[in-house]
């Protein structure tokens, strides 16, 4: 192979110019179809969307399309619904990520221990992840419906609810509906990644610690956690961005209601585009969301740098 490489890079040897050009082009030919498609269907619309944010684009108004400068952003600054959606996004993302992570870690620790039937149990507890999100949303909405679902009756029996009502129509509780559905659907993601990281920890570390008399809690805090830390950090950071953008469950279960109490920024963008057909305003909100997510990612990178320097 080394000889063949040398031959191919040496000019004037056996390989002709045409062959060499073809050889140089080869990786680009493999990647071109995927890249052209990504450019046409993701990058062009992204740029187009950025331009919409400064234009008046309403689907049903043929006279729209003009340049309006920062008009949309001025409207946005005075839009109470947007700021409520922003607060809801923090609440939705924080609660979902925390619960998914906590349950995912517990599940991963449970599955890390060998027991009879582990393969089957693993397949079954990961199954919710394969359930389409629209169906997850509908199914949980049905389960919260007192006519057909058991949850309101159980919550009432436990004394959590004053009456077996649908929490999805209660403005102060509605957000828990989509969060519950999201936790159910998303725990497997954390469990699978954390389980993979757990199984990469050398077993003899635990045995040595046990011989030295370390108890279960001590083994967990001095071996398991430090080993898992990088995986935990990366998974939580990426998942936070993903969940902040994840509007399906809310669109399906509450459509942002009641009284906009479950509207998050991503579902607000979708509603503006899909229901109000105001593409300009929708794109302006999207630009703000994009900027916020970029600031978040940058803060994370900075935080990581300072931690690395200190360590």
């Amino acid at each position: 192979m080394a000889i063949a490489d040398a031959l191919s890079t040496m000019p004037g040897t056996r390989r002709s110019l045409r062959d060499r050009v073809a050889l140089r082009l080869e990786p680009y030919l493999y990647t071109a179809p995927a890249l052209i498609l990504i450019a046409a269907v993701m990058l062009v619309p992204l740029v187009l969307g950025l331009s919409y944010a400064f234009r008046d684009i309403q689907l049903l108004n043929p006279f729209s399309g003009g340049f309006v400068g920062l008009e949309h952003f001025r409207t946005l600054w005075g839009d109470a619904n947007f700021f409520r959606a922003l607060r809801n996004t923090l609440w939705w993302t924080g609660a979902s990520v925390f619960l998914q992570f906590a349950l995912g870690l517990i599940l991963a620790l449970l599955l890390d221990r060998p027991f009879a039937g582990r393969g089957l149990v693993q397949a079954l507890v990961f199954l919710p992840w394969a359930v389409p999100t629209f169906l997850t949303g509908l199914n949980w909405a049905w389960m919260f419906n007192p006519v057909i679902g058991p949850l309101p009756h159980w919550l009432y029996a436990l004394g959590i609810l004053d009456a077996p009502n649908n929490i999805l129509s209660d403005p102060s509780l509605a957000m828990w509906g989509p969060i519950a559905a999201n936790v159910w659907w998303g725990v497997p993601f954390f469990a699978i990644t954390l389980l993979a990281a757990l199984q990469a920890i050398p077993r003899d570390l635990y045995e040595a610690a046990a011989i030295d008399g370390a108890g279960a809690f001590r083994r967990f805090s001095t071996i398991t956690l430090p080993f898992l830390a990088p995986t935990i950090a990366i998974t939580i950071l990426l998942r936070t961005v993903w969940i902040a953008n994840f509007a399906d469950l809310i669109v399906v279960m509450t459509n942002g209601g009641p009284a906009d109490r479950t509207q998050i920024v991503a579902s607000y963008i979708f509603t503006q585009a899909f229901k109000a057909l105001d593409f300009g305003y929708a794109s302006a909100i999207a630009v703000v969301l994009l900027v916020l997510l970029m600031i978040y990612s940058m803060l994370i990178v900075l935080l990581r740098q300072t931690l690395l320097e200190r360590g």
């Binding site: 187009l48 953008n245 929708a282």
Partner: peptide, 27 residues
Amino acid sequence: GRAWLVALMLLTQMFPLVMLVAPIFKM
């Protein structure tokens, strides 16, 4: 350009797809 292509593909996974709803419809 390999590193750039990988970065580009990672980027497409990070931004909110919902912001493409309107432009893609228009296109």
